[in-house]
Amino acid sequence: MSTTSRVCFRLQVRPELLDEYRARHCPVWPEMLAEIAASGRRNYSLFLGDDGMLVGYYETDDDAAAQAYLAASETAARWESEMSRFFVDLTGRPDQAAAPLIEVFNLAAQLSAIDTITESE
């Protein structure tokens, strides 16, 4: 039985490049989309604030394997090389250097815990 990992991360986009950053994602290269899917990442979204704060989210059954797959991908290396100039204070490839945020609340998990307690009473 596999457990789905929910991964969220934050990066800062250079304010002067916000419009270009948005344009580069409409659409993303088809071959890059295929590599993301092949890595095992799904339900992947990016959210961008007017101040350049970028929050990303995806789900995967094995994040280490997904990271390794993308790290070995020539397509992902090309994409990340082109995208790296958009970010403030980032060393390395954006897909590898973004630190994940810690999940502090999950509605489904808490509702499930309540249901489990209720069922055992």
Rank of each mutant, 00 (worst) to 15 (best):
L17K: 14
L17P: 13
L17H: 11
L18R: 12
L18H: 09
D19S: 15
D19N: 13
E20T: 13
E20D: 15
E20C: 11
Y21E: 13
Y21W: 10
Y21P: 12
Y21R: 07
Y21V: 05
R22H: 08
R22G: 07
A23K: 14
A23P: 06
R24V: 03
H25P: 07
C26W: 06
C26T: 15
C26N: 15
C26V: 14
P27G: 04
P27T: 03
V28K: 04
W29I: 07
W29R: 11
W29Q: 08
W29T: 09
P30K: 10
P30H: 06
E31G: 03
M32R: 09
M32N: 04
M32I: 12
M32P: 09
L33Q: 14
A34T: 11
A34G: 06
E35A: 09
E35R: 06
I36G: 00
I36V: 13
I36R: 01
A37Y: 00
A37F: 00
A37D: 12
A38P: 03
S39W: 00
S39H: 00
G40N: 05
G40H: 03
R41D: 03
R41E: 10
R42G: 10
R42Q: 13
N43S: 14
Y44Q: 13
Y44V: 05
Y44C: 05
Y44S: 07
Y44M: 08
Y44K: 04
S45N: 13
S45E: 15
S45A: 15
L46R: 08
L46C: 11
L46P: 08
F47A: 14
L48S: 07
L48E: 09
L48I: 08
G49D: 11
G49W: 01
G49P: 01
D50L: 09
D51R: 02
G52K: 02
G52M: 06
G52L: 05
M53W: 05
M53F: 02
M53C: 14
M53R: 14
M53P: 00
V55I: 15
V55Q: 08
V55E: 10
G56L: 01
Y57S: 05
Y57C: 08
Y57M: 06
Y57E: 09
Y58Q: 08
Y58G: 01
Y58F: 14
Y58M: 08
E59Y: 03
E59F: 04
E59R: 05
T60M: 03
T60Y: 02
T60F: 02
D61F: 10
D61G: 15
D62S: 09
D62K: 00
D63F: 11
D63I: 06
D63K: 06
D63T: 06
A64Q: 13
A64F: 05
A65S: 10
A65F: 01
A66Y: 01
A66R: 00
Q67C: 07
Q67A: 12
Q67D: 13
Q67F: 10
A68Y: 02
A68L: 09
Y69L: 02
Y69I: 02
Y69S: 10
L70I: 02
L70G: 02
A71T: 07
A71C: 04
A72M: 07
A72H: 08
A72S: 13
S73P: 00
S73G: 03
S73W: 00
T75N: 00
A76C: 11
A76R: 01
A77T: 09
R78C: 08
R78A: 14
